[in-house]
Design a protein around this nucleic acid. Structure first.
Lengths: 93, 93
DNA sequence: TCTATATTTAGACAAATATCTAAATATGTT
DNA sequence: AACATATTTAGATATTTGTCTAAATATAGA
């Protein structure tokens, strides 16, 4: 979970995920949405990929990024367990 | 969301939340579960509090920490939207 | 009031992070 | 082959972060 929360701990990378939830995009298309250098966006994409939050497919010169929901489901589960368990214990007291 | 993800981006702080989901605990009880100094745990508790992930009640000399689920619900919602929106768009293609 | 316990605050420091520019790699086009 | 486009890699740097020790604050009890 470490690398996932590390990857999520950045506004730019979270915004990239918000873009990718709408549609798959190339690195360039993604970079166009930001004022950072392409190298910076590329680096952020690498961190997302390393955390398994996105996956890639090569299409000619382009590299197409898309959201990978598997790890997001795990994180969601962890958070919901925090919430639910807390609520359970509240009932008892 | 920035300070929330920042607070969640640390194994120690996530473990503190895992402890607190079971029951409310004093700063000392929490610190006893770790090998770090009390000052370090206190600092981590401050970050959790600043992110509104925990709330406190003073009980004599003790300060009792408990999970605050409000922000967790927001985070959960954001993540589930990433997952759901992605799945919606997959159907279309 | 003095002492013990609980917790936080202050200041320091090494490690990690986000960004940049410049260079390298890969693919497509003429 | 030469050139253009897409993307990543390398190296540098300023900032942020997690931890520590020592000191300060707050409350309880004798």
């Amino acid at each position: 979970m470490n690398i996932v929360f590390k990857a999520l701990n950045d506004q730019t990378r979270r915004k990239i995920l918000d873009l990718l939830k709408e549609k798959d995009m190339s690195a360039g298309e993604i970079a166009d949405q930001f004022d950072f250098s392409r190298a910076t966006i590329s680096h952020n994409l690498e961190l997302l990929q390393h955390a398994d939050l996105v996956s890639i497919v090569k299409k000619g010169q382009f590299i197409i990024y898309s959201i990978n929901t598997t790890v997001l489901n795990e994180i969601s589960k962890w958070i919901v367990e925090l919430i639910d368990n807390k609520n359970e214990n509240k009932k008892l007291s």
